[in-house]
Amino acid sequence: MAELGEADEVELQRLVAAEQQKVQFTAQVHHFMELCWDKCVETPGNRLDSRTENCLSSCVDHFIDTTLAITSRFAQIVQKGGQ
């Protein structure tokens, strides 16, 4: 392949980073679908009712809160252990 100029290389890196971000986001959506579909959708009706919507919101929010709580707890433990 032909050598890339410095500007091209920076542009390419930016593109790759943006694509990786998209991949990660899609993976997150998939992950949440797997978790929250089972929890919130019982018998699929002819529209997404408000109960299900609320459940989905809670599902996503609480998962994020849980992840953050666990992450900070781990960070605490690691910090204590390092001293």
Binding site: F25, Q28, V29, F32, M33, C36, W37, C40, V41, P44, G45, N46, R47, L48, T52, E53, L56, S57, V60, D61, I64
Partner: peptide, 20 residues
Amino acid sequence: NCVERFIDTSQFILNRLEQT
């Protein structure tokens, strides 16, 4: 309904995550 709600759900979660 299942297929249609699956699509709705995935759209809903996508929007929700974008907000988050």
